Amino acid sequence: MNVRIAGVDEAGRGPLAGPIAVAAVILDPERPIDGLDDSKKLSERRREALFPVICERALAWRIEFVEAGEIDTLNILQATLTGMRRALQALAPAAGLALIDGNRLPRDLPCPARAIVGGDALEPAIMAASILAKVARDRRMVELHRDFPAYGFDAHKGYPSPAHLAALRMHGPCPAHRRSFAPVRESLSSLVRQVAPA
């Protein structure tokens, strides 16, 4: 029997707001998908087109979100590893081997695993996971924009763009912001200074 191999990747480690999205995908060798690549090398339109194809043809897939509050509690690395573990644990059918993009492996995985630096450019299953994670996270940031329109999450997806940093300085953080990240912390302390009595 062939071992079911899951690719695992994340999107959203660098932003100041929103969740990390982690995806795990077991591709079906009988149903190959044309056009897979590292999500960063694909246009938004191409990622959106591949998303339903991956979901439909994969043997199993799972997307997990680790929200801003949990990122602040755990730290960004541990939050990422936690999301990877959850995504793998939730796969049905289960994976027999996980190929994880990066150089760190989560603890307590449900199967053997291998870390692959640059895996999203090398392994089709990791490419598929990178696409699911990126598309799912971008969609979540568009939803957050509707709740908190002052920050422009639909445009920069929570990354520290000049417009985002300016909005942070003007409005302070919203509930979607990661308060453990330095620019968010600094915006909080500057707001405190502004409202403190002289």
Rank of each mutant, 00 (worst) to 15 (best):
A167T: 10
R137M: 07
R62F: 00
V22I: 13
R31T: 15
N103L: 03
A23H: 07
R146Y: 04
G172I: 04
L16C: 02
E70A: 09
R85T: 13
P160A: 14
C174E: 02
V8K: 05
A98I: 12
G35E: 04
G7Y: 04
L97K: 08
M1D: 13
A136G: 15
P162W: 06
V25Y: 05
Q78T: 04
L74W: 12
E143D: 15
G14Q: 08
G14V: 09
S43H: 02
R169S: 15
A94R: 15
L122C: 10
A23Y: 05
A125V: 06
P29D: 14
G118F: 01
G102A: 05
G118C: 08
I76W: 05
T82H: 12
L91R: 04
A166F: 03
P183E: 14
Q78L: 10
P162M: 06
A68N: 10
P149V: 11
I76K: 09
V53A: 13
H177A: 12
G69I: 00
M170W: 00
A11R: 00
H171L: 02
F51P: 04
A17H: 01
L168T: 13
D38I: 07
A129E: 04
N103G: 13
E48M: 04
D120Y: 08
A60E: 02
M1Q: 15
N2D: 12
A23I: 06
L50H: 08
D9Q: 11
V3N: 10
A129L: 05
F51A: 07
I100F: 03
S39R: 04
R140G: 00
V53D: 11
A23P: 10
L97F: 06
L122D: 11
V25T: 09
Q194V: 04
I100Q: 02
D108I: 06
A136N: 10
V8G: 06
R146W: 03
I131Y: 01
E67M: 11
R85I: 06
R62P: 00
D9K: 08
A113D: 10
S161P: 00
A23S: 14
P160H: 11
R146Q: 15
I131E: 05
A94C: 13
V117L: 12
A68F: 01
G96Y: 01
H145E: 14
A11P: 05
L88T: 11
K134V: 08
D37K: 10
G12N: 03
G12K: 06
L165G: 13
L105Q: 10
L81V: 04
